[in-house]
Amino acid sequence: MALNTLEFDCKAEAASVRLAAPVHYGVVGSGDLEVILEPCDLGGGVKVKVTTPISGFDAVWRKVVETFVNRARLADVAIDINDNNASPAVVSMRLQQALAETAA
């Protein structure tokens, strides 16, 4: 029954965008999530951690986060997510919004 933790690494095809500062975004409402993006020396890669009560969607998580990382061309970022059953569309949107906060 314990909370599931999913951890994986990925790398953007054209990794070039680094964060100036860490950012936190979102609230863990029902069907929602929060995310922390933090600069972290990872040799250009991205480290991902997802904490969620739902199990069995590892491949979906990987796909959604990798798509985000590729599109944003992120490099050297640690992504830490607390999820409460968010849909892939919501996950995608929250990641984008978190990134937009760093630019603001």
Binding site: A2, N4, V28, N82, N85
Partner: peptide, 19 residues
């Protein structure tokens, strides 16, 4: 949130946590 002081009790129950 960056301190990540979530509830250990929610973790034990398998409930979603917040930083």
């Amino acid at each position: 949130p960056f301190d990540r002081m979530s509830s250990p009790h929610l973790v034990a129950l398998g409930e979603a946590v917040e930083f």
